[in-house]
């Protein structure tokens, strides 16, 4: 529904910060997030005549931004080299072949995750750690765990084999876990035992 309250001139002030953050946590690159946001607004201006007002304009814009984010990741992934030697080592390991895991006995969490997840402050740490995943891993991880794309789709977009994607996600989780552990201590929370 086109009216004065949700026209393009209001988008930047009303939704700019929200959409920038949404893009930033998925792209982990400020300039890329700015580009995605700009492209979203430009595409939305073109398509605005077709906006039917059924969803709030913020979610409509966010829908377009999601596509821009995936586009950006797909383009960027062509420039990222995949470290195959280390991948092969993990993929050839007995545990991966037999059980689909790489490490039978990973270190315990250094905090109680269930408890921490309920804490508002923890979510800030979670956000920071997600934003700092390194580029190659972060892209695949964002598509899988934040956007919920299927592994098949991600393999197609990033030109990866399913096994390579598995290794990348495995590494991303490991990095995320260790980042959370270095930045969150039980003292920050209420958990005591």
């Amino acid at each position: 529904m086109v009216d004065a309250d949700n026209g393009p001139e209001t988008w930047l002030d009303d939704h700019g910060d929200y959409l920038l953050q949404f893009a930033y946590v998925r792209l982990r690159n400020r300039a890329a997030a700015e580009d995605a946001l700009q492209e979203t607004f430009l595409a939305a201006m073109k398509a605005f005549e077709r906006y039917d007002g059924k969803t709030p304009v913020r979610y409509w814009l966010r829908g377009i931004l999601r596509h821009k984010v995936v586009d950006y990741i797909r383009k960027a992934s062509r420039e990222v080299a995949v470290d195959d030697t280390e991948n092969t080592e993990i993929l050839d390991s007995f545990r991966f072949k037999a059980f689909g895991i790489h490490d039978q006995n990973p270190p315990d969490w250094k905090f109680d995750p269930q408890n921490a997840f309920e804490r508002k402050e923890f979510m800030q740490v979670f956000y920071d750690c997600l934003s700092h995943l390194n580029e190659n891993m972060g892209q695949a991880f964002a598509l899988r765990e934040l956007e919920g794309l299927s592994t098949e789709e991600i393999c197609k977009q990033l030109k990866l084999t399913p096994n390579n994607l598995w290794v990348i996600l495995h590494r991303a989780r490991k990095q995320l876990k260790s980042c959370l552990e270095s930045n969150w201590t039980e003292g920050d929370g209420v958990y005591e035992c």
Binding site: W109, P113, F117, M123, F126, E145, R173, L180
Partner: peptide
């Protein structure tokens, strides 16, 4: 556990 955290996020 991590997926649960992401869901909360």
């Amino acid at each position: 556990d991590l997926q649960t955290g992401i869901r909360k996020f």
